[in-house]
Design a protein around this nucleic acid. Structure first.
Lengths: 294, 294
DNA sequence: AATCTAGGGTTAGAAAAAGTGAGTCTTAGT
DNA sequence: ACTAAGACTCACTTTTTCTAACCCTAGATT
């Protein structure tokens, strides 16, 4: 009868977090994405949790997982607990570094929208440190240490601009383009995170779909823009991001057709932030600067 | 500008748990004990948390740590969040295995009090699986996966018996003992978890302290009892545990002096358990069986 | 029917995190 | 001064977690 600590070890936090995320998001892949790991890791965590528990939490099928009644029953309490934990972390971070603001945004937005505004923002808010992280997907603010999110998305928060798109190209190339059908004669660049853009534009402009995005694909909008500035082809431009280029004439819109996408450019923060926090100050500045300037 | 996931990794759960425990218990050692690790591990966790945070959470001094204002400010939210998490885990465990009851108790209690009662308990509650873990210290039910605690302790819960102590020995040895001063002539066995017992008894019996516990020390009460049964000496006996031996005459109390310790034998469970849960049924059975039988 | 594709599962091995243990340091109390 | 408590450090070990590359299934597509 050994009395030494045979590990009373409560429960594996990681496994609980994996469960909560999977249950809330309805799948291992989604949870993996939120937690920044591979689905295999989630699968293993859930498996170990189920083993320790002696009962399954999910019912697996080839097309996804469904919560068992045990899982469904447990989810709310965990979701709430993790929300509170996330909030506690935010509060602590805020108290520890009250003048630091972390912004999460799309790489393209970071480069074309935020970056040009940063010098003035920093100048007008000295003492406030602003850091920017580029992410492909909006993070869950309740679970990740960011203060502000700036994405093309639906949901809460303030709309800074509609997402209006239309083909853009260098002025020289535009001379060759009279009607949208001329697009068949030039490369049509595509960004991987906006693969549906051409489709959307063609649909909303009532144009035949076969004018499809035939041309190189870029994984970074900035690269595609660079190419277009060099006259390499036509890119689906997002008005909110390329406004300076269009204003200066370095890029032009060869056609009149414009399409508005469902997800506007939106800025949001975690619910329940104090209005006097640095993050809220920055948010207000961005909104104000945007509406009064552009 | 790498866009790939540079690990936005929220926060290290382990570190947060270490912080919460340290803050709540007021020290790294105490936290280490609750979490079942060494103080060094806690120290490292806190350090990493402080590094990530960029601000100290504790103010160190040679005689312990004190929360900084940042730490004190953060504690309540974390305590609450972890309480909720613990409760969520309990609920889940309960739903997954409704007929399993985990009891945490002192090794000595497990062997001398619980063990004799288990056969009847199991017979009267078939279908309920009872598992027992022996721990030196009462665990925090809000943080560890036990259903019931049975310890000599102060606090909430039901008192099953006062902790009455007095020297006991084998009948043969008792013949050599007339007055407490005779204790100087025989070995006085001591259990490491009850080192103060002799002192307490001497004090409450108004006897001179120099009759101190001179004799072998055991780390397990059961071993000491075994030795005493073999006539190896005198042991400070806990009435609640040794009742059957005293009743059968295998052990006797050579002196009339008895002392009552401050911490009675107490049974408790986590607040807010449903009365129809298996753990509550077991608790009721133990209370009832104790009062009607012994 | 054959092929895709999306979502899961599995495995071995790699990487990272957490923990240990022994020894040090500082200070309050005897 | 000596002791005890509590915390820190550092080299090392153990455990956990993650990834990468595989397979499997079912519905959708061709």
């Amino acid at each position: 009868m050994a009395v030494s600590p045979p590990r009373p070890k409560s429960f594996a936090m990681t496994a609980l977090r994996a469960f909560e995320a999977s249950a809330r998001l309805g799948g291992f892949s989604a949870a993996a994405q939120e937690l920044g790991v591979t689905p295999g890791a989630i699968s293993a965590q859930i498996k170990s949790l189920e083993a320790e528990l002696g009962a399954p939490l999910f019912q697996r099928s080839a097309k996804g997982v469904v919560l068992t009644s045990l899982g469904a029953q447990s989810l709310p309490a965990f979701a709430q607990a993790f929300d509170q934990l996330g909030q506690a972390v935010q509060q602590m971070r805020d108290a520890a570094a009250p003048r630091v603001v972390h912004i999460a945004t799309l790489p393209a937005i970071a480069q074309f929208w935020l970056s040009p505004r940063l010098p003035r923002l920093r100048a007008e808010m000295p003492g406030t440190e602003i850091s920017i992280t580029a992410l492909e997907q909006p993070p869950n603010l309740k679970r990740t240490p960011y203060d502000l999110c700036l994405f093309f998305a639906e949901g809460d928060g303030i709309i800074l601009a509609e997402d209006v798109i239309f083909p853009v190209c260098a002025p020289a190339l535009a001379e060759q383009l009279t009607t949208p059908l001329d697009l068949l004669t030039v490369p049509c660049l595509t960004d991987t995170s906006w693969e549906g853009d051409w489709e959307q534009w063609l649909t909303q402009s009532a144009l035949p779909h076969h004018i499809a995005p035939r041309g190189p694909v870029y994984s970074l909008y900035a690269l595609a823009v660079e190419e277009v500035l060099n006259g390499a082809g036509v890119l689906m431009g997002h008005a909110a991001l390329l406004a300076p280029y269009l204003r200066s004439g370095r890029l032009v819109a060869p056609f009149a057709h414009k399409a508005t996408l469902a997800h506007p450019l939106r800025l949001w923060s975690m619910a329940g932030r104090r209005a006097d926090s640095a993050s809220q100050e920055v948010a207000r500045w961005l909104i104000q600067a945007h509406s009064s300037h552009s």
